[in-house]
Design a protein around this nucleic acid. Structure first.
Lengths: 327, 327
DNA sequence: CGTCACTATGACAACGTTGTCTCCCCCTGG
DNA sequence: CCAGGGGGAGACAACGTTGTCATAGTGACG
């Protein structure tokens, strides 16, 4: 900036005035300054500006499990859209479902003085966030609640959705329904399992633990589980896949299987309608999830001091075929 | 920091020393300082630190067309992985295939003093980057070259891949092959069209312009084009989809069509193997694209001054079924 | 006992901006 | 002719750090 000032023959304060479109600069002076800026390729240093003004940095942080997973990338996109409308940039990070990594990312973001943080939490302990939140960095939890603190949260109706899935299958005559879920440490997985049990109860189906598998999904793990569940005289006639990754693995396994049980997935996914049979899913609006969370965050950024809010977004069952076959 | 210093009864310089793990601090003093840091919830301001040290900011910028598109989110993930290994955070932005927006994002990132920028360029004019690059911000172009400047670029073999696709279809007896591409303003689309023509030539097929459509893909647009191309006595017997979005739209259209032409897509996508018939594609390693670009960027960040490099990654045809049907 | 080396600490400036205050000049109105 | 006012511009400090240099204290050694 001082280089520009020297070249234009003015003080650096005048350059600052030009850069910030402040009034009370003579047009001729402004022009000289702009020419100098152009010539030197000057670009104001936002870091220094933010430091001096003590204002917001114009960035927010987003932490998800894996930015490469279509579910989270859609979320990312929705968040970005809102952030852009508020003139903010988005710093993203993948926690890889690792709470230490999540914590690292959060603290790093705080050190960068982001204006707020959106996080799909990996762990169950979020006490480390208390000082940051008290220091004025708003945090909104997405898709899963915070483990041990009260904070803004946006969820989907995991419980209701799974109940609906069970009811749908029961309505088509299924009594032996298998449930394949992610690790029970994950809130959504636990909640969906709870919905599964509740759904069984409501439909007069006795809950059979041997038809349930809860673990981190891997192709082989899911493959083995599916084969086991569909084998023998007491085989399941229907399967509920607890999330989009699991659904894909299940489908891949079933593609080579003789018996094709009915199937309902939780989370919609691209091409579900083009498979054979088309896949029935419990769908929810991922963009809405991102929008709601980002809107809530920016309300906080702009000073909203109301008590922490908990938003639960609705889900709906999309019947496409795979869930409507008889046992 | 001065609050911490006051509470611990030391100077702020000593606090700085503790925070930075500098030697020559008495253990007792360090402990007092750490206690004060803990008590006050102090977190050092990275912005001020970077300003003072004049060092790198520890961030890089990534600009893609749409972070929500699985293709780009996989790229994002690969870039993030390398960035993390170099201790950097990633700022992401979607250009929405709009060169003004791209430019805005780039300049914003530069104002934030990112250590480098990775960009999937939207437009053809990148002269605006010259001052930034001269000022020391390395830029690597991904998937498409810069319009009018020389710069590091990582591409995939669009030409070779499309030639391979045509040859594959020709080998299965097809002589009337349609090509559905994205807007010809996009480098990859133009290049794949060039590959299509070249492929026709090499296989002794006369290039028929009426079998080619090049435009921004929309469900309806693709639907109409597919119906037109498959209609009449001179109908195409095979279709090449120019990218993953187009492939999906084509598949959705064909799902309701009476005639099912052979089909090959450019870009692999999830579940392609589970469709009926499974979709033959020209696949390339998106992660490798991101890795290569990020590695190249960090080499530059660390001072590599060699002439701009151009990396072309190989593609390979994955025959799954949809491309192996006779006319 | 004076000197030296070393440890532990602090004062101060500087990074690139911008807010505040001040100054100068010219114009207007009485 | 003078007071008052407003437009245009600069000096200076401060934002939160850290690099440089200075200083005080401690022990060892000749």
């Amino acid at each position: 900036m001082s280089d520009v000032a020297r070249l234009a023959g003015v003080s650096i304060k005048t350059v600052s005035r030009v850069v910030n479109d402040e009034p009370a600069v003579h047009p001729d002076t402004a022009e000289r300054v702009m020419a100098a800026i152009e010539q030197l390729g000057f670009r104001r240093n936002l870091g220094a500006r933010n430091l001096r003004r003590g204002s917001t940095t114009g960035t927010i942080g987003l932490i998800v499990e894996d930015v490469g997973n279509p579910f989270y990338s859609e979320l990312n996109r929705a968040v970005e859209r809102i952030a852009t409308s508020f003139g903010r940039q988005v710093l993203t990070g993948s926690s890889e479902e690792n709470s230490d990594r999540e914590r690292e990312l959060v603290l790093e973001f705080c050190a960068r003085r982001v204006d707020g943080i959106l996080v799909v939490p990996a762990g169950l302990q979020h006490g480390y966030l208390v000082p940051e939140m008290r220091a004025g960095t708003p945090v909104v939890f997405i898709d899963r609640p915070a483990g041990d603190i009260v904070a803004d949260t946006v969820l989907v109706d995991n419980l209701g959705g799974t109940i609906e899935a069970v009811t749908h299958l029961a309505k088509h005559g299924h009594r032996r329904i298998a449930f394949l879920g992610d690790s029970p440490d994950i809130f959504t997985a636990a909640e969906r399992l709870r919905g599964f049990r509740e759904g069984c109860v409501r439909n007069g189906i006795s809950y059979d633990e041997s038809l349930v598998t809860m673990r981190t999904p891997t192709p082989d793990g899911i493959g083995d589980a599916v084969k086991r569940l569909l084998d023998g005289p007491d085989a399941a006639t229907a399967v509920i896949a607890g999330n989009n990754r699991i659904a894909v693995h299940v489908l891949r396994t079933l593609a080579h299987a003789e018996r094709r049980p009915a199937m309902v997935g939780f989370d919609d996914f691209e091409l579900a309608d083009l498979l054979n049979p088309p896949v029935t899913v419990v769908a929810h609006d991922v963009s809405a999830l991102g929008h709601a969370a980002a809107e809530l965050l920016f309300a906080r950024v702009q000073g909203d001091q109301s008590p922490p809010r908990k938003v639960v977004l609705p889900v709906h069952l999309v019947a496409r075929g795979s869930g409507e076959v008889a046992p």
